[in-house]
């Protein structure tokens, strides 16, 4: 790892200023992706700005929404009785990220800022139509994800919280990489008053995406049978030593059916 200066500001404005003043400064959330990236020398920040002392932690549940502070860990979301009651699929998703040590450090804000194409959280955010709140604005999920490791965030923009509308029902199904437990394919299905939204992670070269054909079929008939005959194109899906694009295309259908059955 290259060396860097380390800062741990206690005010959001100070963190924003540190990041805005230096194009090579990087924000540190839980570090469960970022520190391995630094160790591989894939990134060489001048300054690492630790967001842990900004008070961005906590979960608030109202009648129609769940709000999660950006620095809330996967473990806290997984074990939150309030989240388990309001959006059980979200707590379940968090409980399947990595392992306990990773869940004790990794955060929702870090996952979303990084937008790894095989991360779990982007699928929940996109399928539930969540709102990402930053130090300067609110961003709708549909506008936020802009391709692999690419988001609507500006240089130095810090996610402060994520607001999830509570759906009528939802479920997440994930086909894990057997060694590392990331999503080789993950499908989040949400049934809301406005219709069904289906988001797929882990599969596509461009990162998380909505599955329009599944959404239309499930909005008309919310059952696994409704999507049983719909094939997913393997174009633009990832192909690697773990799974071919064709296999991932097949898994999207299987995971989506299981998710619908599990709501």
């Amino acid at each position: 790892m290259y060396d860097f200066a380390y800062e741990k500001p206690t005010a959001l404005a100070a963190a924003v200023a540190s990041l805005a003043g230096d194009m090579d400064a990087k924000a540190l959330a839980g570090g469960q992706t970022f520190i391995p990236v630094l160790k591989q020398r894939l990134n060489k920040p001048t300054t690492v700005v630790d967001l842990a002392a900004l008070g961005l932690v906590g979960i608030t549940v109202t009648a129609d929404s769940v709000t999660i502070g950006a620095m809330t860990t996967h473990g806290e979301v997984a074990l939150s009785a309030a989240v388990q009651k309001a959006i059980p699929a979200l707590a379940n998703l968090a409980s399947m990220i990595g392992d306990w040590q990773v869940r004790h450090r990794g955060t929702i804000g870090g996952s979303l800022a990084n937008n790894d194409p095989s991360a779990c959280y982007p699928s929940a955010v996109l399928a539930l139509g969540a709102t990402i709140v930053t130090d300067r604005r609110s961003i709708a999920a549909d506008d936020y994800f802009q391709g692999m490791f690419t988001t609507a965030l500006e240089q130095g923009e810090i996610i402060t919280k994520v607001i999830f509308p509570i759906p009528q029902k939802a479920a997440y199904q994930k086909f894990r990489n057997p060694a590392s437990r990331y999503a080789m394919v993950g499908v989040f299905v949400a049934k809301t008053a406005a219709g069904v939204r289906v988001a797929v992670t882990g599969a596509a070269q461009g990162g998380v995406f909505r599955h329009a054909a599944f959404e239309a079929a499930l909005s008309a008939n919310f059952s696994p049978d409704a999507i049983a005959g719909i094939a997913t194109s393997a174009d633009d899906l990832n192909s690697d030593i773990h799974a071919s694009a064709e296999y991932r295309a097949h898994l999207i259908g299987v995971m989506a059916k299981r998710a619908v059955a599990g709501t």
Binding site: Y6, K8, G31, I35, D50, A52, W100, Q101, H104, R105
Partner: peptide, 18 residues
């Protein structure tokens, strides 16, 4: 793995300053 503030963490994936 060690405990940091009571919970298990991977000390190879935690900065000393954290």
């Amino acid at each position: 793995t060690v405990h940091l503030n009571g919970t298990s963490v991977k000390s190879c994936t935690t900065l000393a300053l954290q």
